[in-house]
Each structure stands twice: as C-alpha cells, then as structure tokens.
Simulated scan of single mutants.
Amino acid sequence: MTEDIYQNFPQGKDDRHPKGGICHRVITGTLGLLCVVLLTIVIVPAMRLTLCASERDLLQTNLKILQNNVSVWLSGLERRLREGWMLYNVSLYYISTEKGSWDEAKEDCQKKAAHLVIINNRNEQEFLANKQKEFWIGLTDKDKEGDWKWVDGTVLTTQFWDELQPTNDGGNEHCAETRPRAYITNWNDVPCSTPNIWVCEKSNTLANV
C-alpha cells in the first residue's frame, strides 16, 4: 500500500523550476524598463531646465541690447529735433535756411547723413506741400531728358507735377522743385543752378541706430 502511494507521485524534475525562471526574467525586464522610464522622467526635465535657462539668458541679453538701442535712438531723436529736424512717420526732414543749387543741396544733405527728400506717396507730398515753400526735392533728369529719377536711383512713379509741368523750358530744366500752391500737385522743373532752399530726409528707425 505504501509503495503504491509513492508510485503515484510524478517522477523526474520538478516542473516548478522552469516557471520560476520565466517569472525571474519577466520581473528583471520589468525592473529594467521602469529604470529607463524613471531616468527619462528625471533627465528630460533637467535638460529642459537647462535649455530654459539658456534661452532666458539669451532673452535677457537681447532685451538689454534693445533697451540700449532705444535709449540711443531717443537721444538722437531729441538732438535732431533741437537742431530743427521735423519728424513725420518714420522719417526726419530738415528745411535749409540758406539757398543753393540742386547739386549744393544734394551735397549738404549727404554731409548730414541724409539725402534730398524722396517723395513716395500722397501723404508725404501733402506733409511737404503744407509747408508752402519753394524748395529742391531729390528728383532730376540730368542723365537723360524726360527720364526722371530720385537721388537714390529709383525711377519716378508717383508724380505730383504742377499743371503743364515739366516743360524743360530752354532745354536746361533738369531739376525739380516744389512751389507754394493751394493744392498738392506743385512740382516744377527748373535749371539746376537756380538758388533754392532744400529739404533733406533721413530714416528714423531703430535699424539706423
């Protein structure tokens, strides 16, 4: 009887060992994966904090540069206004107190780090026409008759010629001036040697600081 009982027990290796090996590998793999996840959770935010600190430093540096540029720009603007320059939109304008030829006017504006006024649109023309003065503008056809260009070399497109102008009377009217009129179409062509006052223009943006 006793022998029969022992004979009913399974023979050979205990089948619990293979199962225990699989569980061990699963647990080990899971722990490894958890370590990777934990490292990601810790390292990635740390990297982001480093990047944020670097970006913050760069922002602060750029802000200081901008503040300095604004300060320099305001100081320059105040000085020019005291010197007689007028501010309109993004440009400064200076009306001379002396008279000279068109070439003398051009040279004087260049000495002021500016140029003879270039009129780009109706609003700018109205601003200058309201001065009710006769002065040189930066427009000429000296290189080729009838081919009017501004002092920066751009071709004339928007035009505000007075009635019947330009006429090129005498064949030597190659420079443009404005004339006092009750309307904005007040340009006239005259000899470039005519004594006139003039208007200089220069940009007044932070990009020019």
Rank of each mutant, 00 (worst) to 15 (best):
Q67E: 15
M1L: 03
R179G: 04
L87M: 05
I43W: 01
S71R: 14
T30H: 12
L51V: 12
E107V: 04
E83F: 00
A113D: 07
A113V: 05
I137K: 01
R16D: 07
L58D: 08
D108K: 09
C52W: 15
D108S: 09
T28Y: 06
N8H: 03
V37Y: 15
T194L: 14
T178M: 11
A46V: 07
K144V: 09
G146L: 07
N69A: 08
E3K: 05
G76K: 01
D143A: 15
K106I: 00
L81R: 15
Q132F: 10
V209G: 00
N186G: 06
D14M: 09
L51H: 12
R25M: 13
T140L: 12
P180F: 14
Q11E: 01
I43E: 03
G29C: 06
T185A: 08
P180Y: 14
Y88C: 00
S71W: 13
G76N: 14
V90N: 11
G76S: 09
H174K: 12
L164P: 03
S96W: 12
K112G: 02
E163K: 15
R16Q: 11
S203D: 10
G100M: 04
E163D: 15
M86Y: 14
P191V: 06
T61D: 12
I197M: 02
L51T: 10
V190A: 00
G12Q: 08
D141C: 14
E78K: 13
R48G: 02
K144L: 10
G20M: 09
Q132G: 04
I184T: 10
I27V: 09
T157M: 11
W85R: 03
W198Y: 12
L156C: 11
K106H: 05
V36L: 14
L77H: 04
K19M: 13
